[in-house]
């Protein structure tokens, strides 16, 4: 019996070496482990064996059966492994062939800068206000302490539609409208981004259309120091945490005092280079404390309210941040320019 079982195992090994495909292997499995297999016969023969030998013989048969089952399993695994290997070989590709070109689009650089500025101010608790671009003389000038025939109107040569309407020359009229809309005179922190227009011939540094973001804070006690702190925060967010700012006196009819704001040069760190004209500083925006006439005209009592305003040119920020050398590039929309700035 023992010999016979050993022979069975050897016989299987010989047959396994001849197996060519999965079907052969299945047939072999049926032959040895199926319902009509040799083991079935052996188990039947077991009843003719003396009782005291039965346990031993039964054990031997089972061991042989397990051995054969294990060998069949190994053979199956080996066969699968080979199949997968062949599949891998046949499916290998040239990964250096080009992928499906899906030309990535681009967000306009001015939109990117506006969104960046909006995010900075929203984080500081500002809301974003918008208003018409065709504006009345009253909101664009008169309510901003710029009566008709004010010499400072020369600073802003305007494109007029009629005597009383024009293309807004700054987004300040949105501030006026916002003050007027705020009928409960709640504390207010807003920014006003948008297109503005001046009567300037287009050249490398001038554009008849450009983009501004102006900010306005009005409440009982917004101070010049608050303005300075806000400007420092914004400058650092836009140009880097290492930046310092410098305020210089200036003049805008709607603020008093008025200042120009310089940021320490982000290229040389303030030691002086060609970028900053060897001064260490770059002018980025104008600001000031809201002129009492503006508050008064908007129905605010200057004894109870004060505030500050600031205004920056988005093109200027983009020119400085991205080294754009011609303001017209923003409006030409040469895709070789636009596509360089794909957005964050």
């Amino acid at each position: 019996m023992e010999q016979k079982l050993k022979g069975l195992v050897e016989e299987l090994e010989a047959k396994l070496s001849q197996v060519k495909n999965a079907n052969d292997l299945n047939l072999l499995k049926a032959e040895y482990l199926g319902k009509k297999s040799v083991f079935n016969d052996l188990m039947k023969q077991l009843k003719d064996i003396p009782n005291e030998e039965k346990p031993l013989m039964g054990k031997l048969i089972n061991e042989a059966k397990q051995q054969i089952a294990a060998k069949l399993d190994d053979a199956k695994m080996e066969m699968d492994r080979k199949l997968v290997e062949e599949k891998l070989k046949s499916e290998a590709i040239d990964v250096t062939l080009p992928g499906k070109s899906s030309n990535v689009g681009s967000k306009h650089l001015l939109s990117q800068v506006i969104e960046e500025v909006e995010d900075i101010f929203v984080g500081l608790g500002y809301t974003v206000k918008e208003g018409p671009e065709v504006e009345s003389d009253k909101y664009n000038f008169e309510m901003l302490n710029l009566p008709k025939d004010h010499p400072a109107r020369d600073m802003q040569d305007s494109l007029y539609i009629s005597e009383e309407t024009l293309l807004r020359t700054h987004t300040s009229p949105v501030q006026v409208r916002s003050l007027l809309e705020n009928t409960n005179q709640e504390p207010m922190k807003i920014i006003c981004p948008g297109k503005v227009y001046r009567k300037d011939d287009d050249d490398q540094t001038h554009s008849h259309q450009f983009t501004q973001v102006e900010g306005l804070v009005v409440d009982a006690n917004a101070t010049l120091a608050d303005l300075k702190g806000t400007l420092l925060f914004v400058a650092q967010k836009l140009f880097g945490e290492e930046r310092k700012i410098r305020l210089r006196p200036s003049y805008f009819p709607f603020t008093e005092p008025s200042v120009e704001v310089d940021v320490s040069c982000y290229k040389c760190g303030g030691s002086g280079c060609s970028m900053c004209g060897y001064t260490g500083w770059i002018e980025i925006l104008g600001a000031g404390m809201v002129n009492n006439n503006v508050l008064r005209d908007a129905g605010y009592d200057p004894d109870k309210f004060q505030g500050f305003a600031l205004g920056m040119g988005i093109e200027r920020i983009a020119i400085l941040k991205y080294g754009v050398d011609d303001i017209r590039a923003f409006y030409t929309n040469d895709l070789r320019f636009n596509k360089q700035f794909r957005g964050k």
Partner: peptide
């Protein structure tokens, strides 16, 4: 340099 204490939401 300070930041406004004005309580507003952005």
């Amino acid at each position: 340099t300070t930041i406004p204490a004005t309580p507003t939401t952005g």
